[in-house]
Design a protein around this nucleic acid. Structure first.
Lengths: 194, 194
DNA sequence: TGCCAACTACCTACTGGTCGGTAGGCAGTC
DNA sequence: GACTGCCTACCGACCAGTAGGTAGTTGGCA
């Protein structure tokens, strides 16, 4: 049988679906289109997946899972708050650069997932954002960061870096690390108390 | 006849379409749905519009036009670079707060516009982003801002503020101005040379 | 009278999804 | 080694529903 609640769709199918969803948008992309790109018929695609949404959900889940575990590592580390922010920007930016299609689907096709699965994703998204907030909160408490509302600051950082999915491209003038360094320079000087 | 290349669709129709596109996404939204919400039949809707895409294009164009003219005012003003940045964040943030549906369509449904119309939008988008870059470039040249690549800094600011469309809501804990103030605090301290 | 905005009725194309069936690989067993 | 049963991956044909879009008509207002 095929992909149920859990995530276990054949990797090449996920890869192709990710690319096509990212290029044309979830609703505009058709199952035959994906099947064609994989090299099988539409009916065969339904052997691996119960519904179209399964594909979308699998993409979302894989992505948020990876993002959470990468961020968790930073939050739980022994680094100083400033280093955590720097590392966060760097890791996230390079993640976006490497998984641009997936990130595009994840960020642009947010409201396409429905039902209780959507709830699952919302919860994980919150978890992720709370982790980022926590870094700022820590820094403020320890006196490393200026006294500004951590949630808003966190959203500023997230926006800065997430927005990269709309413009950053591998092989462009700057590498992901170089971009992250600029972001970190602005952010850290901005957060540092005087 | 109805909406051709130019923008002249009945305002209430644009308004409804904006709301529905923002809620369900362009491709997921149907013309009957929009017609129903306006209070007419689908066929009547086609009296005002030649194709579904006309609606989308009208929304995009109105929005980028407004954004450009608001930003132009700031760029062309006599303010100091730091004040320009502050004003930019404030104006953009409140614009997003006031036109959230429109901004959502504009930012999330970018690749749905096709053909030469898309080209038109890309050019305007570039114009807009270049204006933001210019503020940073000026500030760097005058020694008001730190020496960092203006394009990347501009994208950082744009990301910070644009990202607001995903989370900011009127009636939330903070007003658009309050959020903009936090953003400005971080950004200006981050850009200020030492 | 003539135009406008709306209507009813309809068409075609295509979508997500199902059905029944097939080809081949891999046990086990007589 | 031939026979059986089972499983995975796939296919062609098909279906109901719905999408965008069109044709022709009507009522009201200037």
């Amino acid at each position: 049988m095929a992909g149920n609640g859990g995530t276990s769709v054949r990797p090449d199918i996920i890869e192709v679906a990710t690319r096509i969803f990212s290029e044309r948008g979830y609703h505009a992309a058709s199952m035959s289109e994906i099947a064609d790109a994989v090299g099988i018929r539409k009916a065969s695609l339904y052997h691996h997946v119960r519904k179209k949404e399964d594909l979308l959900f699998a993409i979302h889940e894989t992505l948020i899972e990876e993002l959470i575990s990468a961020t968790e590592e930073i939050v739980d580390s022994e680094m100083a708050p400033a280093s955590k922010v720097e590392e966060l920007l760097r890791v996230t930016m390079s993640f976006i650069a490497r998984n641009r299609d997936g990130v595009t689907v994840f960020l642009a096709e947010r409201h396409a997932v429905t039902g209780e699965r959507w709830q699952t994703l919302v919860i994980k998204r919150d978890t992720y954002e709370r982790m980022v907030s926590q870094i700022i909160t820590e820094g403020r408490a320890s006196g490393d960061f200026v006294d500004l509302p951590p949630d808003i600051v966190a959203r500023a950082l997230l926006g800065m870096v997430n927005w990269g999915y709309t413009w950053f491209q591998l092989g462009g003038p700057l590498s992901a690390d170089e971009v992250a360094d600029v972001f970190a320079a602005v952010a850290l000087r901005g957060l540092e108390p005087r």
